[in-house]
């Protein structure tokens, strides 16, 4: 019996988020089980299933995510330019958040 990883999307336009898996012999049965197991209690707009063995993985034991040397220049927050366009300002605040996240780990 194959294992199928299940991804649930709460609303149109949102990302499908991994929510667990189901055992099923084929795609049709996997979709049938997944809609009950993962879609019956929480708001669900769409569900994806994919065979577990089809998922590629690389983890922190295999690589160093982000490299090992200081790359401050990678971050827009390092550049002090006034009157940024709205899009740039948005991107900056996203990067500032990402930087904070990285710092926390």
């Amino acid at each position: 019996m194959m294992i199928w990883e299940v991804f649930r999307q709460e609303g149109a336009g949102k990302y499908h988020t991994h929510c667990g898996n189901v055992h099923a012999p084929d795609r049709e049965m996997a979709l049938m089980f997944a809609q009950i197991q993962h879609g019956r209690r929480k708001p669900t707009h769409s569900i994806w299933v994919t065979p577990q063995q089809e998922i590629g993985e690389i983890d922190e034991g295999d690589t160093t995510f982000g490299g090992t040397t200081d790359k401050g220049y990678r971050w827009a927050t390092q550049y002090n330019i006034t009157a940024a366009a709205e899009e740039v300002a948005d991107s900056e605040s996203e990067q500032a958040d990402a930087e904070k996240e990285r710092g926390r780990r």
Partner: peptide, 11 residues
């Protein structure tokens, strides 16, 4: 027969 079929028939 399986957890999945159990949940489906209960549903």
């Amino acid at each position: 027969p399986t957890v999945e079929s159990d949940i489906a028939i209960a549903n």
